[in-house]
Simulated assay, not measured.
Amino acid sequence: MAVLPIRIMGDPVLHAPAAPVDEITDEVRALVSDMFETMDAAPGVGLAGPQVGVALRLYTYSYEDDEGAPWRGVIINPELWMRPLEPGEPDPDEESEGCLSFPGERFPLRRSDEVLVTGIDLDGAPVRIHVTGWRARIMQHEFDHLDGVLYIDRISDGDWKTAQKVARKRGWGKPGSAWMPGVDHLDA
């Protein structure tokens, strides 16, 4: 297992749709193991293949709820269905999120409160995940990565302008931008 560098906004792999996983090989299993280690080292609650430079449709997730119940897994070739969004502006206290590919910042973003995700696991067995709340947010955020969408692509115009200023100031927005969990200490 190894911690992998996490690509930052502007790297082309983050801004293009990922390809389906055709076969679950030892290489895919090793990638998933490395993704879990990278996600934990970052730390994050989700990590998609493109975020570590691999343009494949898979992501890991890990979240502990208020009662300490763990929720952890991988989903390969996911499909996502969501309840329509509630109208209105996002609550900055309750609906803000961050991203390991835009580290150190959080912006409000309205997401669906309920999703269903299907796909397969590392054994090729079917996976069906029906979740609400923060877990639904994680599923939508990671799924977006597989379509080349960063959460900052979905935020309000004013916040998007702020995000662009942050990116320019930090030298992001170009190919090859990355950070290394455990070495570079960035907050996401």
Results as ranks from 00 to 15, higher is better:
125 A>K: 15
147 D>L: 12
146 L>E: 04
144 D>K: 08
120 I>D: 01
119 G>V: 08
128 R>C: 12
135 R>L: 14
147 D>M: 11
131 V>G: 05
150 L>W: 05
148 G>Y: 07
116 L>T: 14
150 L>G: 00
141 H>Y: 02
123 D>G: 15
127 V>T: 10
132 T>Y: 03
144 D>P: 07
118 T>D: 07
143 F>L: 07
121 D>T: 14
144 D>V: 11
130 H>K: 14
131 V>W: 09
126 P>L: 10
122 L>N: 10
123 D>F: 12
146 L>R: 00
142 E>Q: 11
128 R>N: 12
120 I>T: 14
116 L>W: 12
149 V>Y: 00
117 V>H: 00
132 T>H: 03
141 H>W: 04
124 G>C: 06
123 D>C: 06
140 Q>D: 06
123 D>S: 14
130 H>V: 13
122 L>Q: 11
121 D>G: 10
137 R>A: 09
127 V>R: 13
125 A>D: 13
135 R>P: 05
149 V>A: 05
137 R>G: 04
121 D>M: 08
143 F>P: 01
142 E>M: 09
133 G>M: 08
148 G>I: 08
146 L>N: 03
120 I>N: 02
150 L>Q: 02
129 I>E: 15
124 G>F: 04
121 D>Q: 12
117 V>N: 01
140 Q>W: 01
134 W>A: 14
132 T>G: 14
150 L>I: 08
147 D>T: 10
133 G>E: 06
150 L>A: 02
147 D>C: 09
116 L>V: 15
133 G>W: 08
127 V>G: 03
